[in-house]
């Protein structure tokens, strides 16, 4: 019986300690609840922020994509504009060549000036340094009144043309073979790269036979053919006009 107070005291102490432990547990639990609540608030806030950032990023990506599209369109427009400018410059060059050729042919006051004009057109505008300017001698043969880059025997044989050249001269039409296919070894007097026959009405007044082009020319271009047309028409008229002038002067 002497131990009873001690036992009771012990039980009371354990009970108090348990209560104290329970109280602290409740406090901890309350603290944790508050923490969870705070974290939940923060999580919601962060979630909202993430959504805002995502929306911002999506908007920026869309803007970037739109800017890329605008940039691509601008680059394409610039490229198109450059191509158009190049085309216009090319057209201007072509017109300049045709104008100058026409001017030189029509402004020639004498035979030497006309021959010089034809020579310069063939060399500098067409780009050919192997050619001969032929004139009919009135007796069924041809005479070479100017030439460049062709050997003497070659020129001598042109007074009585044979082969394709003879056919071209007889046909009184322009004939053009792309000289890009001709090599150095294939130079053949009877096969010019281009034969331009100059006629006025039924009368043939001259012809230009061109052989190989300058090395930097890979072939004939549309402008060359226009120059040939211009030579055929304008040089023919100029030759005819000069012949008439010579005839009139001779008559006086």
């Amino acid at each position: 019986m002497a131990n009873e107070p001690n036992q009771e005291s012990y039980v009371r102490r354990v009970l108090e300690e348990t209560r104290e432990y329970e109280r602290r547990l409740r406090e901890d639990n309350e603290g944790l609840r508050e923490l969870v609540a705070t974290l939940e608030v923060e999580r919601v806030a962060l979630q909202k922020r993430v959504e805002e950032l995502e929306a911002g990023a999506t908007q920026q990506l869309n803007e970037l994509s739109a800017m890329r599209e605008r940039l691509t369109a601008q680059v394409n427009a610039n490229q198109k504009s450059t191509e158009q400018q190049l085309a216009i410059e090319q057209q201007n060059t072509n017109l300049a060549n045709l104008y100058v050729a026409s001017y030189r042919l029509n402004s020639a006051l004498d035979r030497a000036e006309l021959v010089d004009a034809i020579r310069e057109i063939v060399i500098n505008l067409v780009g050919c340094e192997e050619f001969a300017l032929l004139e009919p001698d009135g007796q069924g043969r041809w005479q070479v009144c100017d030439s460049m880059g062709l050997p003497a025997d070659f020129l001598a044989s042109m007074t009585r043309p044979e082969g394709a050249l003879a056919g071209h001269l007889r046909s009184r039409q322009m004939h053009v073979t792309d000289p890009a296919v001709l090599s150095v070894d294939e130079l053949d007097v009877s096969r010019p790269s281009a034969s331009i026959v100059m006629s006025v009405g039924d009368e043939t007044v001259g012809a230009v036979a061109m052989y190989r082009l300058l090395p930097q020319k890979s072939g004939l271009e549309p402008l060359d053919r226009e120059l040939f047309d211009l030579l055929a028409a304008n040089a023919a008229m100029a030759l005819y006009r000069l012949k008439l002038q010579e005839f009139v002067k001779g008559g006086k």
């Binding site: 060059t93 505008l125 780009g127 300058l214 090395p215 930097q216 020319k217």
Partner: peptide, 30 residues
């Protein structure tokens, strides 16, 4: 007139800054 290497080389040797060949291409020249 001739775009052959020797002409171009001579041009650069004597001090040219650039070259164009005939027939003259307007865009290239500009």
């Amino acid at each position: 007139t001739r775009g052959e290497g020797v002409n171009i080389e001579t041009g650069y040797t004597v001090g040219c800054n650039d070259y164009v060949t005939k027939p003259i291409n307007g865009s290239e020249l500009l």
